[in-house]
Amino acid sequence: MTMTASSLDITVDDISVTYSNAKLALYNASCMVMPGTITALVGPNGSGKSTLFKSIMGFLQPSQGKIRVGGFPVQKVQKRQLMAYVPQSDEVDWNFPVSVFEVVMMGRYGYMNIFRTPRQKDRRIVMESLERVGLVDFRNHQIGELSGGQKKRAFLARALAQEGKVILLDEPFTGVDVKTEKRIIDLLLQLKQEGHTILVSTHDLASVSTFCDRTILLNQTILASGTTQEVFTEDNLTMAFGGLPISSLRQMTGQMTGQSSHIVNRQTSQNAEVEA
């Protein structure tokens, strides 16, 4: 939560991921998340968003390629508490007997001794994080007692408590109402101001153009990446969401597609890495 240290980038260099059932989830994916930006990772279901996320977080080992965060390999980034992860809601066991406070405290474990004894500082940071997401009054609730939006915020508070420079959010807007969505977006914009690098995976195209500086378009490989305006062209979106009729896409993205389609296309966009 400090503005001192410089922001970190994420470099994904030629990653391929194969699962044990021989299914290729991701191939030759290269992209860059610029430091200090909010970047959206957009693609249809099954496009490999989660796979790329898990590779960046080091949860799975790509069969090829390398990933650097701020120039460091992922393992070093984990050890230095530089990267925090906000999981999808359905990855969490909401019946688990832990309180909101305890979950947020888990964000501090990496700073503690091996018995994980919280110090005064850890407690203070946990309370500050809870305050930022507005869950102080709910800190003693079991996590399953929270509403959908509060659940998201609880895990966002854990990421804040971890004080990572890079924050990855996996589908943060599924199942939350508009008010909560706005609240989360406001918080993300604040975090950007403080120098965090934020990567958000989503298939909610409408909200992307409102708060994401940059977008990476994914379907098995990187189809395009650049500023959100550059990437949201009709061509690109058709390519990514092939099955969907264009009209529905235009509806989802608002006027953005119409405006930019003639200005920039995937060949000219600076960071586009297009695979035939």
Binding site: F59, V92, V98, M106, Y109, G110
Partner: peptide, 15 residues
């Protein structure tokens, strides 16, 4: 307990 609850987070903080 963290490992039972959220092994991904455990990994993310370098455990």
């Amino acid at each position: 307990l963290l490992f039972c609850f959220d092994p991904n987070h455990a990994k993310a903080i370098g455990l």
